[in-house]
């Protein structure tokens, strides 16, 4: 059985908000299938007694005072927006109200 089916790729693409054409799905199923097969190598290791490395360095929490700091002005924050009315980011309608 293939490690990854076209259906799996479709499901994951939906989670990742990506639309793929048919040929790309086929190719990804195959490429990612062989990559995942390679990754199964990790199962050779017994890691039942090993702690996962959740942080690159052993650090404790870093706190800062809860004070207002200067931040981006609205104009600057909106300067790269694909669509704006000068106050908000504009996006297509989410709910059809008609």
């Amino acid at each position: 059985m293939p490690k990854l089916t076209v259906k799996d790729v479709e499901y994951v693409a939906e989670l990742a908000h990506l639309t793929l054409d048919g040929a790309t799905k086929e190719r990804l199923a195959q490429e990612l299938g062989s990559i995942l097969e390679y990754m199964d190598k990790l199962n050779e290791l017994d890691t039942s007694q090993v702690e996962p490395m959740m942080h690159a360095l052993e650090m404790t929490n870093i706190f800062r005072c809860d004070e207002v700091q200067p931040s981006l002005s609205r104009d600057v924050a909106l300067q790269n927006a694909p669509k704006t009315d000068g106050e908000y980011f504009l996006v297509p309608k989410i709910l059809d109200t008609e």
Binding site: L36, M39, L42, N43, L45, T47, V50, E51, P52, M53, M54
Partner: peptide, 13 residues
């Protein structure tokens, strides 16, 4: 996959 990889990452370190 992910959790397993994090554990093996500990071993590599």
């Amino acid at each position: 996959y992910y959790l397993k990889a994090q554990k093996v990452r500990s071993l590599i370190r």
